[in-house]
Design a binder for these strands. Structure first.
Lengths: 115, 115
DNA sequence: GCACGTTATATTTTATAAAATATAACGTGC
DNA sequence: GCACGTTATATTTTATAAAATATAACGTGC
């Protein structure tokens, strides 16, 4: 099998508080320094990226991304200390869960065609 | 927090081979004895349920649901021995992963507003 | 041989998500 | 004070997913 993996979504009140998409976006923002550059690098529209950031900023107790408008470089965005904690914790959960059920998952995926 | 949980999806080749939706459907079919009754009980259209069953039957090495057309009761569907294995294995993966990261997930979810 | 409830399938309609487009406001550097 | 690249936001268009509707075929029981 070429590409098997587990997707772990943390759900609160029927909406996904954190998942691989938001985590990847946070990492891209961290790396690129702006929402627009992050969106571009992920092949995502700026609006969608901004909406995701906005949702996260509103749903957590503190902002996960800090933005600035104007200035020499037009503005930008960076992950906050708090956001980095969220990201780190999520990645840890992801990795731990993945490792724990790695064997069982492989066995199950073996029952798929092709691969 | 009212309702926090983890959603675990098993992904192969960028499509979800098994997840909570399909697992719930398999259980409903097992309980109801037909795709249509299962769909109805889940508030899902028959077509969608049938498509999901069809996708599973085609993607796994053996059928997970056996269907029959006609007869005294018009026909029906039941989960196969193979399908029950898939379901059982998935539920086990789900439970094990959940248990493993239970504490970490709770800590992370604590950082959400409201709850 | 007709009625029944179901599977299997196609087609059309509706709802939802995402992309595309547009624009104002911002603040620093020149 | 103008240019720049960005955030923030609204609106329109497009794509995608799901529901709704329709229909044929099936096989047993009556």
């Amino acid at each position: 099998m070429s590409n098997i993996k587990i997707k772990i979504q943390l759900v609160a009140n029927d909406s996904i508080a954190m998942g691989p998409g938001k985590a990847d976006l946070l990492e891209a923002i961290q790396q690129k320094g702006s929402i627009s550059a992050a969106a571009l690098s992920m092949g995502m529209s700026y609006k969608r990226a901004w909406d995701l950031v906005n949702t996260m900023n509103k749903s957590f107790k503190q902002a996960v991304v800090a933005t600035s408008v104007g200035g020499g470089k037009g503005g930008g965005a960076q992950i906050t200390e708090f956001g980095l904690q969220i990201l780190t914790r999520y990645r840890a959960i992801e990795a731990k869960a993945n490792l724990t059920v790695q064997v069982e998952t492989k066995v199950l995926m073996e029952l798929l065609l092709d691969n």
